[in-house]
């Protein structure tokens, strides 16, 4: 009986894993398959789809746009989100919790509503042209509250007396931040920046509404799926997978995060 239950558990877990990781495995496997159809049997190992992708100017344009959006988004969101969190830690909980919740509203309402609102705001009121800058603005709306939440959580266990001690020992407010606060929240900052980067990289709805013309990787893939379902999409997905896992691994190593 016990053996049967153990077996059942194993089966359930195996199916969960299969269901969640299966599509990823299929994407990776077929990106290296020579056939043009995503169907068995496999026809042979090939790098053709990568070759095709890398020779496509459209791909490189989308790739550059993605970086041009995700890198500034990650940096700006980390700076402003951290400043928000640091400012909030000086307030009492009864003041900081509602403020943080108010700042998090953009994550809680449907992205479609945010996207439409942004377009109206940009075009009608601010006369800001749609494009990369407009996308960054939209992504900041989504990523900055997440950074603020992550950093606030870290600051909750931060010893504020240590900051006063630093000031007392001759540090200016900036030096106290630089030598006492920053080293202790660095891991949280890198984590938050990566989170913002990842969210921005695969964000689709706000991007397609506010980019005007041109593509990022997510809108490029979407466009390709509407016209031709060829395995070079699998190649893009595999690349994104490698970039995300790789950068996370590097960040964890950099921040000496253990467990």
């Amino acid at each position: 009986m016990r053996q049967f239950r153990a077996l059942l558990w194993f089966a359930v877990i195996a199916m969960l894993v299969l269901f969640m990781l299966g599509p990823l495995a299929i994407v990776v496997v077929f990106s290296f398959n020579s056939g043009a159809l995503v169907s068995l049997p496999l026809t042979g190992f090939s790098l053709d789809w990568y070759r095709e992708l890398f020779s496509s100017d459209e791909f490189w344009a989308a790739f550059r746009n993605s970086l041009a959006v995700a890198v500034p988004t990650a940096l700006l969101a980390t700076v402003t989100g951290t400043m928000t969190a640091l400012a909030l830690t000086r307030k009492s909980a009864s003041a900081s919790v509602p403020l943080l919740t108010a700042l998090s509203v953009p994550i809680m309402i449907p992205p479609l509503v945010v996207a439409i609102g942004l377009v109206v705001l940009y075009v009608r009121w601010l006369s800001i042209p749609l494009g990369i800058g407009a996308v960054i603005g939209g992504h900041l709306l989504l990523t900055q509250p997440l950074v603020a939440l992550v950093v606030s959580a870290r600051m909750a266990s931060f010893d504020r007396v240590a900051l006063e001690a630093a000031r007392d020992l001759g540090a200016t407010p900036w030096q106290a931040f630089r030598y006492v606060t920053l080293p202790q929240i660095r891991a949280a900052l890198v984590g938050a920046a990566l989170l913002a980067f990842a969210i921005s990289l695969d964000e689709f709805i706000i991007t397609i509404f506010t980019i005007g013309s041109g593509n990022t990787l997510s809108t490029f893939v979407w466009g390709k799926m509407r016209t031709s379902l060829d395995p070079s999409i699998n190649a893009i997905a595999t690349l994104l997978l490698v970039v995300t896992i790789g950068s996370t691994a590097i960040a964890l190593r950099m921040t000496r995060y253990r467990g």
Binding site: V161, A162, A165
Partner: peptide, 20 residues
């Protein structure tokens, strides 16, 4: 005068040591 420019130093009740 801000604390960093005063000829005083403080030993705090909860130490305030730099944990890192």
């Amino acid at each position: 005068t801000p604390p960093q420019k005063r000829p005083t130093n403080t030993v705090f009740q909860s130490h305030g040591l730099f944990a890192h």
